[in-house]
Design a protein around this nucleic acid. Structure first.
Length: 895
DNA sequence: GCGGACTGCTTACCT
DNA sequence: ACAGGTAAGCAGTCCGCG
């Protein structure tokens, strides 16, 4: 009950429409209030300055205003649903740091006479690589571009250029590549995504008592934590516990008339007219703006209820109406708007002579931002691998609107054979509106999960919402680490200095071309095993980073007395004197997830709304924690430190090996294991308790009984198994039958087998199941032999083209051959496209599905595929594909 | 010149 | 631009073969 008000922070309804009127909306005449209110909302003054006093609002973005030379914060006030701009009043300025002394710096004329130069001052900071205080010179400028960002003449470039080459010291510049608005956020300690009010012109944080109470109660859960750890646990919890608003938002999508259906119109040229734009919003606007064109009929394609079509006589009028929408809504959602919809409209509007100042879009190299609100390109967000896998559990495979919509919402695009020019107005409108509807619903399903996820990530990473939804997990992690460096007055080291100081790796990877050795995979015991217990370390690598104090500062630290604190099987040692920042930050995040949010997300006694919120939090933490080790081994990460990644993996191997030998010692058979898990055959309660006790005391890490399989099927292949849980659900891991490129014809057969196996309860059931499985295989085999499959699509392999066609110079894989055929017939092919092809008898042995016919299929190839797919399971069951097939031959012979 | 052994490339998966 | 480990199939190359 006390938690309830946490969620009361929602906007007033945009229109007074009560639910009763909504039910009968079709029978009533259009409600005049809707249009009236819309008119009121139109086009506020630009920029929409925050008043001297503004009620609780969300810090959604920050940017730099070049004219006023100030940072600007975009505040979203959820009651009115409007954005307000708050200009910095703290006098914060851009700067960078250097090791040059103040007098030496002042001798550099190109610096002190630089147009944007303001002044320099002496500053004492902690150098984390040397673990000591150092004095640096802070160069303060009036303009971020003076520090860096111009092709030439930036201070960060001038210093190494103009500093005497024969001087004893190497000139260094630090923190010169941090975006100004980020620097502003770090130094002011404003927290993006959190709630502020403007009081007498100043930005002050709002305090939510209920959330604070929850946070205060956390102490009891973290008894073993140090004060420092607890401080961070509370800090993270605050970012998660504070309420989320309802996001007033609109999804938009445009259609462009193009003479050729196979080519996507070029958004930089914008030669063809925009003929349609749909809008689907949280204000319940479902509207399609359509351009009147000669010879086009209205048609009678059904439209969703309460949707409306507005016709425009000119394209300019249509675009201006769309721009009004962009001036109105605080959040605009698109699917690929950065590269297409918004970009196209900007160029198209310019081509039509619309004044740049009337176009509410700022166009960048890779992004399109809005001058008023926040543009979230959901394509970029859903494309993010970490989001795809950990937040959405791989519910979609291809990042297309159709596939994401299908996987996440069960909603697909309207299928359309005709070109845009051939559609009637209503067909076009229905088609276009569906796209906006899917886009909108990608953010509204499960109680606005996606919007909330973006909000939580905004808070954790201290980034504007636009950036967090577009950039990868390594940027999120970098940013909160940078923020804490600034907070602790630590110099943010340059990447090359970390690398030079800490060096590279020492182990040899199993895979050629990798930098260091990774995880262990235990050789599986082939066969069917009943009662298999799966134990695993929750968040193994983050736990290691925490327990072993890993970070770029602590690995191979400068203290001689730490050199004996070695990481097993590596030459690396770890600091015993100072806590590494990464260890603290990642460790506290891990603890919060494992000890608090994991359980809260599953707690059915909580109100649904709150449980959903905890699911979001849990998912966000999972995404970040899963990547927190990998980033240290990624060159693109600003705090790239290979020995940290190597040490983490080495400790992981050590931990698993310890468990393996301990399991042996207590007499349990280990059937399999991978990285952070062990599969135990029919263990007793005591044996499980012993393993848990051992890991907690000897390895200082928690281990969970994750699940128990009624039975599991292993072949001799690693990362390939099938396990049936107590409730009859089936885990399939790595088997060919679940891979997405395999033809549906084979996948269906595999799924039939899977369903049959789910019904097996004991060894005796197996005999009956085996017969049925043999039948499934035999049926497919016969269908292939007789060429009786339903349609060609069933036989299509679907392989993603990883690169543009021109880049395949070393080999020409089959999907590339098929893609080349398609290209010749005029289809535009680019990296990321899904290529569907069937295997044929004649060279080149492949054909795009749409061009292939039944009798040219290479049936034997498909039989070979069926064979290999099923062999992965059949040999463990004591069945043989050849025998199953051989029997058929005999039957046919007798018949 | 041919075929099997081998390596490398590519994709999709697991943790 | 988070990492490494594994499986599978195919493309291309090498090497032996009187």
């Amino acid at each position: 009950m006390p938690q309830k008000s946490l969620f009361d922070f929602s906007p007033q309804p945009k229109k007074p429409a009560a639910p009763e009127t909504k039910k009968t909306a079709e029978a009533l005449p259009p409600q005049p209030t809707v249009t009236q209110e819309k008119k009121q909302r139109k086009r506020r003054v630009y920029p929409p300055l925050a008043p001297e006093n503004l009620p609780a609002s969300y810090f959604v973005s920050a940017t730099y205003d070049g004219r006023q030379r100030k940072a600007v914060v975009k505040l979203y006030e959820p009651q009115s649903g409007d954005i307000y701009f708050w200009y910095d009043n703290t006098g914060h300025k851009p700067y960078c740091l250097t090791n040059l002394s103040l007098p030496d710096l002042e001798k550099m004329e190109r610096v002190v006479n630089h147009q944007g130069y303001n002044h320099s001052e002496i500053l004492e900071v902690c150098d984390p690589l040397a673990d000591k205080k150092i004095t640096v010179t802070k160069i303060v400028t009036d303009d971020p571009l003076a520090v860096g960002g111009k092709p030439q003449g930036s201070i960060r470039d001038i210093i190494p250029e103009d500093y005497p080459k024969d001087a004893p010291m190497e000139p260094k510049v630090w923190e010169a590549k941090i975006k100004y608005y980020q620097s502003y956020i770090y130094d002011t300690r404003y927290l993006p995504g959190m709630i502020y009010e403007v009081k007498n012109g100043s930005l002050v944080p709002c305090v939510f008592e209920e959330a604070e109470k929850t946070i205060a109660n956390l102490k009891g859960l973290f008894k073993d934590a140090t004060d420092e750890e607890l401080e961070y646990v509370e800090e993270w919890a605050r970012l998660i516990e504070y309420p989320a608003p309802k996001f007033r938002r609109a999804a938009i999508d445009i259609e462009v008339y193009a003479p050729l259906s196979t080519r996507v119109p070029d958004s930089r040229e914008a030669v063809y007219p925009v003929v349609c734009c749909s809008l689907y919003s949280s204000d319940d606007e479902k509207k399609v703006l359509v351009l009147k064109r000669p010879g086009v009929h209205e048609g009678n394609c059904p439209m969703p209820p309460d949707s409306q079509i507005e016709y425009y006589e000119t394209e300019e009028a249509l675009l201006r109406a769309v721009f009004d929408i962009l001036w109105d809504y605080p959040f605009i959602l698109t699917f690929n708007g950065d590269d297409f919809d918004l970009r196209y409209m900007v160029h198209r509007a310019s081509n039509l002579g619309i004044d740049r100042r009337d176009i509410p879009i700022d166009i960048g190299r890779r992004v399109c931002l809005l001058r008023y609100g926040i543009h979230i390109d959901l394509y970029k967000f859903f494309f993010n691998r970490a989001v795809q896998i950990y937040a959405f559990n791989n519910r979609y495979r291809d990042v297309t609107l159709n596939d994401v919509g299908k996987g996440v919402l069960g909603m697909e695009k309207i299928k359309n054979e005709k070109t845009i020019g051939e559609l009637t107005y209503t067909e076009l409108a229905a088609y276009c509106l569906r796209d906006s509807e899917i886009t909108y619903k990608l953010t509204s399903f499960e109680d606005e999960l996606a919007m909330k996820l973006i909000l939580v990530l905004t808070r954790i990473s201290s980034m504007p919402m636009e950036d967090v939804s577009r950039q990868g997990v390594s940027r999120w992690i970098r940013n909160f680490m940078h923020r804490e460096h600034r907070h602790r007055h630590m110099l943010i080291p340059n990447s090359e200095d970390i690398l030079a100081e800490k060096g590279k790796t020492s182990t040899t990877a199993v895979i050629k071309g990798k930098k260091y050795q990774g995880a262990i995979v235990v050789e599986p015991v082939p066969g069917v095993h009943f009662n298999v217990a799966v134990m695993d370390f929750p968040s193994l690598y983050p736990s290691i980073i925490k327990v072993w104090n890993l970070g770029y500062q602590s690995i191979r630290c400068p203290h001689p007395e730490c050199k004996s604190n070695l990481v097993p099987n590596t030459p690396h040692w770890v600091c015993t004197k100072e806590r590494a920042l990464e260890s603290l930050l990642i460790g506290s995040l891990r603890d919060l997830r494992v000890s608090w949010y994991k359980n809260r997300a599953k707690d059915k006694s909580l109100p649904q709304e709150q449980q959903n919120w905890y699911k979001v939090a849990q998912g966000a933490l999972k995404v970040i924690l899963n990547a927190s080790y990998g980033v240290f081994g990624a060159e693109s990460f600003d705090l790239y430190c290979p020995p940290v990644a190597e040490a983490t993996a080495a400790i992981g191997r050590h931990s698993i090996n310890q468990i393996l030998s301990h399991a042996k010692a207590v007499g349990v058979q280990v059937l399999y294991g991978d990285t952070d898990s062990v599969f135990l055959k029919n263990p007793t309660k005591e044996q499980i308790a012993e393993v848990i006790h051992f890991t907690e005391h000897e390895l200082k890490m928690g281990i969970d009984m994750e699940k128990t399989y009624r039975y599991a099927v292993f072949s001799s292949r690693k990362k390939n198994y099938l396990g049936v849980l107590e409730d009859g659900s089936v885990d399939v891991k790595g088997l060919t039958g679940k891979k997405k490129h395999i033809p549906i014809f084979i996948k269906d057969a595999f799924n039939q087998m899977k369903e049959r196996l789910a019904q097996v309860k004991n060894p005796a059931d197996f005999e009956k199941a085996k017969k049925d499985i043999a039948d499934i295989v035999r049926t497919r085999y016969m269908t292939l032999k007789r060429r009786e499959w339903q349609d060609m699509n069933q036989l299509a392999f679907n392989v993603v083209l990883g690169d543009d066609l021109a880049h395949y110079t070393k080999t020409t894989p089959q999907h590339v051959k098929a893609a080349l055929v398609l290209q010749t017939s005029g289809v535009e092919i680019k990296a990321g496209d899904l290529i569907s092809f069937v295997k044929t008898i004649r060279p080149p042995h492949v054909k795009p599905v749409e061009l292939a016919s039944r009798n040219e299929v290479d049936v034997d190839k498909y039989i070979a595929y069926l064979h290999s797919t099923f062999d992965q399971v059949l040999d463990a069951l004591g069945l043989s594909f050849d025998e199953i097939i051989g029997l058929t031959k005999l039957e046919r012979f007798l018949a």
